[in-house]
């Protein structure tokens, strides 16, 4: 990927997520987050993950954040926006975040990539990324795939049970 494009995308992602997480109005926060997810999808495209970029836009920006917007609409947003934005312990939180950042950056400074896999860009270009990911999902990762479907089923049932007014 072009370093300038990476610089723009990285700066935009960090700026948008920072803006999003400090907004008072949750609707504005979700809208900033949607723009951030689109930038992340472009970054995935640059990394050769076309299928994931599409899933990022469809599932994250299209489904999960719309779910957030729905719930914000159900809740009383006026009350939500009154009072303090941050809790009293915010210097504590910011120091924990900065410490974590320094720790991981120090650790990953001299990272050495491991053994190279078989999916070189040439192989992926010949078979397309989506087909290869699908083949892997339905052969080698079939058990985790089924477990993921079970998790989604449990989530659907659980969400209905939790949000229902009265269970008969």
């Amino acid at each position: 990927m072009n370093p300038y494009l990476f610089g723009y995308l990285g700066a935009a992602i960090l700026l948008l997520s920072g803006l999003s997480l400090t907004r008072k109005n949750p609707v504005h926060a979700v809208l900033y987050m949607i723009v951030m997810f689109f930038h992340l999808a472009v970054l995935y495209l640059g990394l050769g993950a076309e299928f994931l970029a599409a899933v990022q836009i469809i599932v994250y920006a299209g489904a999960i954040l719309v779910l957030f917007l729905f719930v914000i609409m159900v809740l009383n947003i006026k009350e939500e926006m009154e009072g303090e934005r941050f809790s009293v312990g915010w210097p504590f939180g910011i120091s924990i975040a900065a410490g974590l950042f320094l720790l991981v950056v120090l650790i990953t400074g001299n990272i050495v990539p491991g053994r190279q896999g078989a999916y070189t860009p040439g192989v992926i270009a010949a078979q397309t990324n989506t087909k290869l990911v699908g083949t892997l999902l339905y052969t080698q990762y079939i058990l985790p795939f089924e477990i993921a479907s079970l998790i989604l089923l449990v989530a659907v049932v659980g969400a209905i049970v939790l949000a229902k007014k009265k269970l008969r």
Binding site: L14, E84, G89, I96, A97
Partner: peptide, 14 residues
């Protein structure tokens, strides 16, 4: 770490 900061400091559950 941006996410960690937001999780530790924001009051609203959303």
């Amino acid at each position: 770490t941006t996410g960690v900061f937001g999780f530790l400091t924001r009051r609203s559950i959303i």
